[in-house]
Design a protein around this nucleic acid. Structure first.
Lengths: 142, 142
DNA sequence: AACCATATTAGAACAATTCTAATTCCTACT
DNA sequence: AGTAGGAATTAGAATTGTTCTAATATGGTT
């Protein structure tokens, strides 16, 4: 009973990646599962301190990074880089090139954009839609 | 010749919104148009200082905000709030409720996701796709 | 020309995150 | 079981992008 299902799968994931299963990582993971919302690192820190008062915010960040690496948690707002401004006013998507750090515009047909908006439940009114890709651009030069 | 087309349209937009056309705003706007990429505020600051060495970074931020308000410039990475983590691992979009600040998950059919990926030019390989809406959720409670 | 709201400025403040260096903890090996 | 050694944790400082503050300057209107 000291090893519930959740922690075994966590332990497995960690060891499979050559990482150590530590109490901190377990507690952080459970704190995220606790409520099905989208907590910030600070919120997770608060939840976790209740059970483990000695844990530090830096550790929470470290654990989160580990969990994201293992694919156990997703990061919603990856973009911590500075805000960027663009003069291209018509609706378009962005491709963030991971190797160069550059951002390229991607055209999105209006028809497809409409389909995206149609995903929203009734009553939801989106004032903006942001679509961004992240990855490697091919070697073809221009 | 001291009032090229670009600045007249800028002036018009500003005055239409009850805002003043100032040299700083003009210079910032031109700096963004100068190159068709996605500069950060710092980069714009650097470009601008060449012509107007006395301008301050705060002003650049102010001008950018104004230009975004007027719809002359788009902000790419609006999300300045802290990174959020979510345990929902299958592909989904997010809806940022502007009134409550909450984030709701939106399901995206795999078929539609495939269509989005298909927008990328050949050679582009996206490791992640992020789709987020921003707006007001309806009044229906749950 | 004077007024007054609006803009600009420099620098301090802030918030989220990362870094640093010291300590502690797991795990593997005897 | 004991211990070496690398990995993880910790507290606090540092960093970064952005916003705030309070004083000064400016532009457009009367």
């Amino acid at each position: 009973m000291s090893t519930p299902l959740e922690s075994t799968s966590l332990t497995k994931r960690l060891t499979d990646s050559g990482l150590r299963p530590t109490p901190q990582r377990e507690v952080v993971f459970k704190a995220i599962l606790q409520k099905r919302n989208h907590p910030t690192a600070d919120e997770i820190f608060a939840r976790v301190k209740a059970q483990m008062p000695t844990i530090s915010l830096a550790t929470v960040y470290n654990c989160l990074e580990t969990l994201v690496q293992c694919g156990l948690v997703r990061q919603v707002n990856i973009e911590r880089a500075p805000t960027r401004y663009c003069p291209n006013l018509h609706e378009h998507a962005h491709f963030h090139d991971e190797t160069t750090g550059e951002i390229h515009d991607i055209d999105v047909p209006a028809e497809l954009l409409a389909k995206l908006r149609a995903l929203l439940p009734p009553g939801y009114d989106a004032s903006s839609v942001e679509l961004s890709f992240r990855g490697k651009a091919g070697p073809e030069t221009n």
